[in-house]
């Protein structure tokens, strides 16, 4: 009765369940309609017309560059004149650069610390800030938890450079807040951003501060999915809090853990602004001191815009592109198999 599939391209009402949409019926009737008027054809086109602005922007500024990347990496690209085919030359140059492998190592270092840090700290914060599902349902909001959540999330929306300024002060070896705290509790005071050993940890601390609230919100959403009854049942069975967390809560939020780990690794491997801001300086080219914080993203930037070697930067970008795309696709594939997503699937 309410089959609402209609005039092709014009009237197919959504709502998520017309017969045509479910594949029960073809989306176009086998129409034998003579003489459609121009107006109707225009209406058939209206759909494309409305999609076109979004489509052209995304195609022009994202898909075309993505395609261009594959070309550039195999050319001696010259911004101002003719470009010549290079074959694998860019890559062989690249793989003979010790600095490139150093940058990959720094990237791996950064990601290897950030991913567990984001995940564990995010989960810990969420556990601290979470409200019982019952409270969420009844709409009663405890101000304490709400404020804590707001404050923890706030750094994530702040502009990176603006907040890097104060963190640069925090990390000042002489008068900064970090070393003041360390001095107070009687620990050693590293040189932070001036030290090849401590510059990266400083950047990591800033990154954690900036991103962990974001991941905590994912965990809060994940924890809200764990029904109170399940925990009560575990309690009734005599399970300790740790046991029920490990055996009940953790498996149920495994999709969130997985998602946060992936998001964090993709973000870590692309981290740029905070490293640029904290490790730059008047010496030209960020990523210091002595390349201690030159991650892949920083090296791409420096190669292209400081050393003016755009083809090499393109080759590096292509490697990064393929690695990150692979992570994303593997995540899509694995997510289906590994993780408990609720329900009986």
């Amino acid at each position: 009765m309410q089959l609402s599939t209609a005039e092709p391209g014009l009237l197919k009402e959504s709502g998520g369940g017309t017969a045509a949409e479910n594949g029960l019926l073809p989306s176009r009737h086998a129409g034998s309609f003579d003489g459609r008027r121009r107006k109707l054809r225009l209406h058939g086109m209206a759909g494309y017309l409305f999609i076109m602005p979004a489509f052209s922007v995304l195609t022009l500024f994202f898909y075309i560059p993505a395609g261009l990347l594959f070309i550039m990496a195999f050319y001696h690209w010259n911004l101002f004149g003719n470009s010549t085919f290079a074959g694998w030359a860019n890559f062989s140059t690249l793989f003979n650069q010790p600095l490139y492998f150093r940058s990959l190592a720094e990237t791996a270092y950064f990601a290897a610390v950030m991913v567990p840090a984001d995940t564990l700290a995010g989960l810990a914060l969420a556990l601290l800030l979470r409200e019982g599902l019952g409270q969420l349902r009844s709409g009663k909001r405890r101000r304490g938890g709400g404020i804590g959540r707001s404050l923890v999330f706030l750094p994530h929306v702040t502009p990176v450079i603006a907040t890097s300024i104060i963190w640069a002060w925090v990390f000042n070896p002489r008068y900064g807040l970090a070393n003041y705290v360390l001095r107070t509790v009687g620990l050693g005071q590293p040189g932070w951003l001036d030290s090849t050993r401590w510059a990266m940890p400083a950047v990591m601390l800033y990154s954690l501060w900036h991103s962990v609230g974001y991941y905590a919100v994912f965990f809060l959403a994940g924890l809200a999915m764990v029904p109170d009854q399940v925990l009560e049942a575990a309690k009734a069975d005599g399970a300790s809090r740790w046991y029920s967390f490990r055996r009940v809560v953790l498996p149920m939020i495994s999709p969130t853990i997985f998602m946060v780990a992936i998001l964090s690794s993709v973000a870590s491997m692309q981290a740029f602004s905070q490293i640029y801001a904290l490790s730059g300086g008047p010496h030209g080219g960020a990523g210091g001191p002595a390349y201690a914080t030159t991650t892949d993203a920083l090296l791409i930037y420096n190669t292209a815009f400081i050393y003016q070697h755009i083809s090499l930067a393109a080759a590096m970008s292509l490697v990064l592109f393929l690695v990150l795309l692979a992570i994303t696709l593997i995540q899509k594939r694995l997510a289906r198999r590994w993780v408990y997503y609720g329900g009986d699937k």
Binding site: M1, Q2, A30, F33
Partner: peptide
């Protein structure tokens, strides 16, 4: 039975096949 479809066809919200 198709009564709403008929109404919607008159309204122009649905197109008849013929």
């Amino acid at each position: 039975c198709g009564k709403s479809t008929l109404l919607r066809t008159i309204a122009g919200l649905e197109q008849p096949s013929s």
